[in-house]
Design a protein around this nucleic acid. Sequence first.
DNA 1: TATTAGCACTCGGTAAGAGTGAGTGCTAAT
DNA 2: ATTAGCACTCACTCTTACCGAGTGCTAATA
Lengths: 343, 343
Amino acid sequence: MTGEDLDKRVKAILSAVVHNYIATAEPVGSRTLSKIDEIKLSPATIRNVMAYLSDLGYLEQPHKSAGRVPTDKAYRFYVDSLVVANALPGDIKRMIDNELGESSQGLESLLIQTTRLLAALTQFTGIVAAPRVEHSQLKMIEFIKMNARQIFVVLITRSNIVHNKVIDVSEDFSQEFLNSVTSHLNSQFSGQSLLEIRENLMENLAVEKARYDQLLAQVARLSKKAFELPEEDSLYVEGQSNIVKDFHDLDKVQRLLKALEEKIGIINILDQTVLASGVQIYIGMEIESEELQDCALITAQYGSENNFLGAIGVIGPTRMNYPRVIPIIDYTAKILSQALINN
Amino acid sequence: MTGEDLDKRVKAILSAVVHNYIATAEPVGSRTLSKIDEIKLSPATIRNVMAYLSDLGYLEQPHKSAGRVPTDKAYRFYVDSLVVANALPGDIKRMIDNELGESSQGLESLLIQTTRLLAALTQFTGIVAAPRVEHSQLKMIEFIKMNARQIFVVLITRSNIVHNKVIDVSEDFSQEFLNSVTSHLNSQFSGQSLLEIRENLMENLAVEKARYDQLLAQVARLSKKAFELPEEDSLYVEGQSNIVKDFHDLDKVQRLLKALEEKIGIINILDQTVLASGVQIYIGMEIESEELQDCALITAQYGSENNFLGAIGVIGPTRMNYPRVIPIIDYTAKILSQALINN
DNA sequence: TATTAGCACTCGGTAAGAGTGAGTGCTAAT
DNA sequence: ATTAGCACTCACTCTTACCGAGTGCTAATA
């Protein structure tokens, strides 16, 4: 990304600054580095290197007589040079296993639990994007008549994920009739993605209309309604209160909370994650959202190898402890995926 | 509650202090009152009255040389003396009608939308407790077989509210068999509350066990699982970011956010509301929760006359604008109730 | 030639002191 | 019963001074 190829010693100092800043949240001075580190250099030498790193845009000074603070670029370097992520401590592993292992809970409560778990383990804000409906493949659909005007639709995907909703109808269909419609839909569309089904149905609808067959046209309309997609994929957010710890500016806190409430911006970012594989890290300006500056987003997709369903992650300050958080996200995504497959 | 019967003039001054404090969030001094109000009295006289009110516990001074601030007791007096609530402005009325009027959305999204609406209109934090399952009456139950080990249960109540979940079973029941079970359950239990049904089933289970009839015992276990209640009723919360505006203390903000995350405490308070009728107001210490001090909670139940389902409300600072907020809660609850009945 | 010691300089943060003003309680006059 | 007058309180703001961590630059050193 940035063509710079830094000297080994320069890299060591940059890493040390980032490391120290993550630990203390205080600007790092040359004296501190000279003392603490195995980089046996005098403060003066370190100052030279730091000035160099400032020129390259890796470090910043809050004001002239203060130590250095890492920029987004520095965090990016730091994260990229973390070749080996920390191993996940056994007790945390066990916590994740316990929380998500016991199955027999519905999708929704499983995802909520995952979100809470992420927040609790990382002490940041946990986010989980629910599986996207439109690309999932139909396993079966079922209609249950509620009353003359409403039908309850249950839709089960290949991944055993259940979606359901109520649709309004103008005609009073009998349950027997509904059953015949569903068995037809099941045999015709089973295995196709909801998006494909929708397209097929649109064609059908046109054909039936042309035929002037009242009943069939009604069935077509009914089916179309049943496969209509929800306006908005849902996002679970937990642990907002952790934001207060990390940002001491009330204004900043409010804008972050607002951004989390609006959800849509974050869903868009997570949508990218679902396509990429493994743990993804977005730092500061790499997140295109205005409000999420000074934040880092660590995410991973979940689902099975060839069928990724959604993404999980945490949002925290750019100065979060990456080596600690990354393996948590990674492992949680894996266990969640398993829980969904076993489902 | 407090036996005090205040002089008319004293009441006027107390009201004026509360009113002014709600508007400005600044401690109110005697000079301010003497100027602004139609109470044509000198600051000195007002000071006497204020000293009296301080003695009775209606007013407090942040420090000796500051104006007065209302206590919870003062807000309680103020709210109780609001005989006539403000009429709700037409445009707000229309907003509520528009947002909740258009039906054909599921229960969940309707409740979420209500929560958001409350937050948007009041600029405080909106909360909505979902209908409590256990007291609702069964209209019909339906089993859909997902696979050999899992069954999807749909449960529709008299109020046309749909609950659903996945249950795990050890036996591989056929769909036909499941249908026969549901038709039996429907005919036997339709109209009973879920709590009653559970009790009946427990008896059944005992009887069947005694009979050593393998199949019937299995059916009994299956039915029992189907009617098992969710561990926790759900609470929707929106507009947390508004908290930051009203509480300038970071620590306070964090504790409030935490309390909202935990939900259970707030659900308990709302449970009381479902039993009482009309708009309920809880001020400061009247809420038994530690974290919700300095907060007021305005709530109302929703549902039909003889069958209340849940409660809606807002949480804000005790110095919220009660005359403005109360009618919003009141009207929103009414429209939500209608939307659910029309459903 | 790379490193370091030395030094002048910067500047946020804290502390102390003074002045301001909104507000109070009390007393005496109306 | 009400009010004018007055001494007093105390948070807030502003100024001043000082401290110290940290810097950049230059000259000495290995």
